[in-house]
Design a protein around this nucleic acid. Structure first.
Length: 511
DNA sequence: TGTGTCTGCCCC
DNA sequence: ATTCTGC
DNA sequence: GCAGAATGGGCAGACACA
C-alpha cells in the first residue's frame, strides 16, 4: 500500500465529524490493504509507530524539508526507513537520524509530509485512534466489533489481529486467547468522589489500598518469568526481585496483576519518584536494587495452571490469589458484602482513613461479582483519592494547540513567597471548559505585561482555585516543590493575590 | 570529564 | 495521570 | 459511557559540545 493512500485517508478522517463516517473510511482503507501491510497500516492509523521509539522528537522535526512533487513511498518502505532511524546509535547519531529523516521526508509529498510529522510527533489529531481503527478493521473483515476488540485486548496487539483477520477471516479470531507469556491490556479504574458514592455505584464490593507505584503484570511459565508495565513494556531485566519472588510461588503457570513500589524500613511507601527512578534504571540494576529495593504487591490473578480467570467473578479470583501469594505480597483488603449496612459503611470509611494514615494514595473499590475487563475502564473498579485545593496566582499562560489554538490555555501558577513575590509551582490546562478558556484568554490579555512566543506573562493579580493530588519535590521550580495533577476548580475574583496560599504551606504538604 | 539538551506506545 | 466534549 | 484531545512533572539514558 502506498503512503499516499494512508495520508489521504487520514486527512479525510480528520475532516469527517461523524464517527460512523470515520469508521467507513478506515474500513475502505483496510479493504484495499494487502494483509501483509495491515499491521503497519493499523498502527499508523491509530497514531503510533511499530518501532515504539525512534529517537526523533519535536525538535528534530521542526525544520522544513522540500516535499517531493510526486508520491513514491510505500508503507513498507517507510516502515523500513523508520526502523533504520530507530537503530541508529553512538557518536554522530543525531546527525545520522536527521539525514535519514531528510531522506524520508524528501521523498514525501506535502500531504505525506504532514501525515508523517503528525505521526512521528504523536499528534495525529484525526479524531480516531485505537478504538475507531479497530472498528474500521472489524467492518472491513465483516467481523463483530466486540470480537475484534476482545482479540486486541487479549493479544495486546492490534497489528497481529489485523494481519490474521485480513488474511484468514473472522474465524481466525478464536486463536486470540489469554496466553501465558503474552501480556493483556490491564483493567483500569474510574474515579469516584468519595467512599459512599463508590459503594453506591458498585454494590457488594471489596476495598483495596491504592498503592502509589507502577502497575505490573507478571507472567510465569515454569522458570520463565516476565514482568510488564501498564503499556506492556517488558521490564523483566530491571526487576530481578519480582522474578525471584514469583518463581518461588507454589504454581507452574500463573498471570498476576499488581503494583510495584519501594517501602522504607518501617513499611511505609517511599515517594513515587524513588520507585519511578528505580524502575527506569537499566545500566546498574544490581546497584539500583541495593539502594532502592522494590516490592510487588499483587491484587489480581488472571491465570493459574491452565485455567483462565478473566470471566471468573472477582471474589473467586481473590480466593485463588490468597492461596497462591503470601500475605506480604497481597494488597490489604476489606470486603463490604452489604454497602447499605451502616456498620459496614463505617468500616469502609475507617479502612480508607487507615490506608491514608499508612501513607497510601487512597483506595480502589471493586465490585465482587465482576470479571476482569482487560483494557477497559470498567465501572466495576472505582478509585477514591483525597483531593487538596489551594488558591494560587496566575503568573502567565501559554497559547494552546489543536482545538485550543488561539486561546491562552496552559496557566503558570504561583504561590506567595515571604518577600511578597510569587514563586512558580507548576502549570495546568485541565478543568477548563471552552467558556472558561474564552473568558480567561480575554482576562489575561488585559493583564499582560510581556508577549512571548509561547504565550504571555501577566501582572500577578488573578487568583485561581487549584485542585491537586499531592506535592512532590522539584528541581525545575524555584521553591523546590510542584503539584501533582493540578487542575482548575474555579477563578476566585473575590480574592486578592495577598489572600493566596504561601510557598511555605505548600512545602508543608511534602510526604 | 562534566554539563546541557532532547527524548520517551516513559511512569504517574 | 485529569478533564472536557462530541457522539 | 466511550473515545479522543490537550496537556502536567520527574526520571534515566543517550548524545552533543565545551
Amino acid at each position: 500500500m502506498r503512503l499516499a493512500d494512508i495520508a489521504r485517508a487520514s486527512r479525510d478522517i480528520g475532516a469527517a465529524s461523524a464517527r460512523t463516517e470515520k469508521v467507513a473510511l478506515l474500513a475502505e482503507l483496510f479493504r484495499a490493504a494487502d494483509p501483509a501491510d495491515a499491521p503497519v497500516v493499523i498502527m499508523y492509523m491509530s497514531g503510533r509507530l511499530p518501532q515504539r521509539r525512534i529517537g526523533v522528537g519535536w525538535n528534530t522535526l521542526r525544520e522544513r524539508r522540500e516535499p517531493s512533487p510526486e508520491p513514491r513511498l510505500g508503507v513498507r518502505e517507510v516502515d523500513a526507513l523508520l526502523t533504520r532511524i530507530a537503530a541508529v546509535s553512538g557518536k554522530g547519531a543525531q546527525g545520522e537520524r536527521k539525514r535519514l529523516l531528510d531522506e524520508l521526508l524528501g521523498a514525501a509529498t506535502e500531504e505525506e509530509q504532514l501525515f508523517l510529522l503528525r505521526l512521528i510527533s504523536g499528534e495525529l489529531r484525526q479524531g480516531a485512534l485505537d478504538a475507531v481503527a479497530v472498528e474500521g478493521l472489524a467492518s472491513a473483515a465483516g467481523a463483530p466489533v466486540a470480537d475484534v476488540r476482545q482479540a486486541v485486548m487479549l493479544s495486546g496487539s492490534p497489528a497481529a489481529v489485523a494481519e490474521v483477520l485480513l488474511s484468514r477471516g473472522p474465524s481466525a479470531l478464536a486463536e486470540f486467547r489469554l496466553t501465558v507469556g503474552r501480556p493483556v491490556l490491564p483493567m483500569l479504574a474510574h474515579t469516584a468522589k468519595g467512599i459512599d458514592e463508590a459503594l453506591a455505584r458498585t454494590g457488594p464490593c471489596a476495598l483495596e489500598e491504592k498503592l502509589d507505584g507502577i502497575r505490573i503484570q507478571v507472567h510465569r511459565d515454569g522458570d520463565d518469568v516476565r514482568v510488564f508495565t501498564r503499556t506492556l513494556a517488558d521490564i523483566t531485566d530491571r526487576t530481578p526481585e519480582v522474578v525471584a519472588l514469583v518463581r518461588a510461588l507454589p504454581v507452574r503457570r500463573v498471570v498476576l496483576d499488581g503494583e510495584l513500589l519501594a517501602f522504607d524500613e518501617r513499611g511505609r511507601p517511599r515517594p513515587f519518584q524513588e520507585t519511578s527512578g528505580r524502575t527506569g534504571s537499566t545500566l546498574d540494576v544490581a546497584g539500583a536494587q541495593t539502594a532502592v529495593p522494590l516490592s510487588p504487591v499483587f491484587f489480581e490473578v488472571l491465570h493459574v495452571d491452565g485455567e483462565d480467570l478473566l470471566d471468573t467473578p472477582a471474589a473467586e479470583r481473590r480466593a485463588l490469589l490468597d492461596r497462591l501469594v503470601p500475605e506480604a505480597q497481597r494488597v490489604r483488603r476489606l470486603v463490604v458484602a452489604d454497602p447499605t449496612d451502616p456498620k459496614e459503611r463505617a468500616a469502609a470509611a475507617a479502612f480508607a482513613a487507615e490506608a491514608l494514615e499508612r501513607g497510601q494514595e487512597g483506595v480502589v473499590v471493586k465490585s465482587l461479582d465482576a470479571g476482569y475487563s482487560a483494557g477497559r475502564r470498567g465501572t466495576s473498579w472505582l478509585k477514591v483519592k483525597p483531593v487538596h485545593t489551594l488558591d494560587l496566582v496566575v503568573l502567565g499562560a501559554e497559547w494552546g494547540h489543536g482545538r485550543r489554538t488561539g486561546t491562552l490555555s496552559n496557566l503558570h501558577l504561583g504561590a506567595r513567597a515571604a518577600d511578597g513575590t510569587f514563586a512558580m509551582l507548576g502549570k495546568t490546562f485541565k478543568g477548563l471548559t471552552d467558556a472558561l478558556l474564552t473568558w480567561q484568554t480575554e482576562r489575561l490579555r488585559k493583564l499582560t505585561v510581556a508577549e512571548e512566543t509561547w504565550g504571555v506573562t501577566v501582572r500577578p493579580e488573578l487568583v485561581v482555585e487549584i485542585a491537586f493530588d499531592g506535592v512532590q519535590r522539584s528541581t525545575r521550580y524555584p521553591a523546590g516543590v510542584t503539584l501533582r495533577f493540578a487542575r482548575v476548580v474555579r477563578y476566585r475574583e473575590d480574592k486578592l493575590p495577598s489572600d493566596a496560599d504561601t510557598v511555605e504551606s505548600v512545602t508543608a504538604l511534602l510526604p
